[in-house]
Design a protein around this nucleic acid. Structure first.
Length: 483
RNA sequence: GGCGCGUUCGUCUAGUGGUCCAGGACGCCGCCCUCUCAAGGCGGAGAUCACGGGUUCGACCCCCGUACGCGCUACCA
């Protein structure tokens, strides 16, 4: 079997779109599974769309996701350069071949004539607007003359009429087009740059790409590419057109309706593991009930044959859930690193917490967080004494007799020497009994006093973690502040 | 408009002619556990398998048509 070589070929827009991530991921998984090569190629043939730093951002986002490539602009490789803007002469050389065989031709039509043509065709209510092959008839002499006169020109693909163009798509099966419906696509623009269609075919061939795995938006232009392969007498790669990622209203996923950049999700605190896992499941599944995957498991299970045909809505709820799942399954030491980073970016950055303390916080909160930042937001009391107390909880649990009871508890706690969790619990039970009250009468106010809220880990876990001295302080100040 | 692709619970999906009056997951609701909140366990609501014709003893699964949606229709990718 021939070796698998696939590529992710984005145009550098400035960020990595999650749809792009999904395409890149499927390419990556397919390559790794087949022990093939995964290549990054930058499709920067539109000079009007140049964005400063876009390639760097793209590469950063890709690497953050764990999609490392074997060949690419910054990775090198035998088939470079991997930036299309650096391959201009290659396209020029190849298109000349097409001109000599008559499969492409020079076109000197002005934008004005093209516009008129289009308008005329619309007026006549023609089914589609196509170039009329006007320049196909120009003589060699005339062409030379136009060159001499520096008349701007483009090079067009010469699509022969009445032909059926058929290709097999790995996800969609057999797809057929009629050549009469295909326009004489511009291959080289008047600025000398190639269009996507030419560049992508030439590069895929030269880079020995075995499978073209890309978004469904390319399906309609694939016949042009097929025509190009045939004209060059090149072997066609296998095509796999992936279903689109959709907005909640089922239109193509766009910026207008939410976050589309990988960077957005990263900045919102999503784990790369969760994003990758989630995006992998949008349009693919292994045929079983497994939903939680690590990258290596995805590589193991992935196959193009099991990619769906229809578009998938990007459902944030499920991403949230997967993020929580990944967070919970993460090693504590890994979590520690993430939490420390989070602290550094928070108002607690100048505080100093020991690793062992943070590790205990992690253990206590692990089942209760969906994001790393939740450690700070859902349990700020582990990082500073409460400044205020949850109003609803005060209403519910802070009775007239509460301060006196808590003070008694305070005194009992004070007697403890190097207390364990059980010591705290026993002390509280003792006070409750002496007061002839249910433990709840003390537990809930204690939680409130110590944390300022009514939710969180077991109250004795909190107390133990905070330590006796801190707990005593917090009880005192709560008694002072509440009411 | 033309061409292409698609259509199973709100969402992601399983399903390749009988095992499906359709299974799982997220979300939602309820119960259990319990000092709270989670997590976990159990249960529930939720899909006339877009619609209409065929083929077949039998269709979510095969064929045709219709509707709807999406994509493409640039000297953008």
């Amino acid at each position: 079997m021939e070796s698998v070589r696939v590529r992710f070929a984005p145009s550098p827009t400035g960020y990595l779109h999650v749809g792009g991530l999904r395409t890149a991921l499927y390419n990556y998984l397919f390559a790794r599974k087949a022990n093939g090569k995964f290549i990054l190629r930058i499709e920067d043939t539109d000079r009007n769309r140049f964005v400063e730093g876009a390639v760097e951002n793209l590469i950063k986002a890709l690497k953050w996701c764990g999609l490392d490539y074997d060949e690419g602009p910054d990775a090198g490789g035998q088939y470079g350069p991997y930036m299309q803007s650096q391959r201009l002469d290659i396209y020029q050389d190849h298109v000349k071949e097409l001109i000599s065989t008559g499969d492409a031709y020079y076109c000197f039509c002005t934008p004005e004539r093209l516009n008129e043509l289009k308008e005329e065709q619309q007026r006549q209510k023609l089914p589609q607007a196509k170039y009329d092959k006007h320049c196909l008839a120009i003589s060699k002499n005339e062409i030379e003359h136009n060159f001499g006169a520096d008349i701007p020109f483009v090079i067009r693909l010469n699509v022969k009429p009445n032909k059926r163009i058929i290709f097999d798509d790995i996800v969609r099966g057999r797809v057929e087009f009629e050549s009469n419906n295909i326009d004489d696509q511009i291959l080289i623009k008047s600025d000398g740059f190639p269009t996507y269609h030419l560049a992508n075919v030439v590069d895929d061939h030269l880079m020995e790409i075995s499978h073209v795995i890309r978004g469904e938006e390319w399906l309609s232009s694939t016949p042009k590419h097929v025509l190009l392969y045939d004209s060059f007498n090149w072997k066609r790669p296998l095509f796999a057109h992936l279903p689109l990622l959709l907005n909640p209203d089922r239109s193509k996923l766009s910026k207008r309706q939410g976050d589309v950049a990988v960077e957005d999700y990263r900045d919102k605190g999503f784990l790369k593991e969760a994003l990758v896992n989630f995006v992998a499941l949008l349009g693919w599944n292994a045929g079983d009930d497994k939903e939680f995957y690590y990258m290596n498991e995805l590589v193991e299970s992935f196959s193009l044959e099991r990619v769906n045909k229809s578009g998938a809505v990007f459902d944030l709820e499920k991403l949230n859930w997967l993020n929580a799942e990944h967070l919970r399954k993460m090693q504590d030491t890994e979590l520690l690193a993430l939490l420390k980073e989070e602290i550094l970016n928070s108002k607690f950055s100048n505080q100093n917490y020991s690793d062992s303390y943070l590790l205990e916080v992690i253990t206590a909160m692990k089942e209760r967080v969906s994001f790393v930042k939740d450690y700070l937001e859902k349990s700020p009391y582990f990082f500073e004494a409460p400044n205020n107390y949850d109003e609803a909880a005060v209403q519910k649990n802070w009775k007239a007799e509460t301060p006196a009871m808590l003070l008694k508890l305070h005194d009992e706690f004070e007697k403890l020497v190097n207390p364990s969790k059980d010591d705290f619990e026993n002390a509280l039970a003792k006070v409750a009994e002496e007061l002839n009250a249910g433990k709840g009468k003390l537990i809930h106010p204690l939680r409130l006093a110590v944390s300022g809220m009514s939710t969180g880990p077991g109250v004795f876990d909190i107390v133990l973690l905070l330590g006796k001295d801190e707990v005593l302080k917090r009880i005192k100040s709560a008694v002072q502040k509440i009411n």
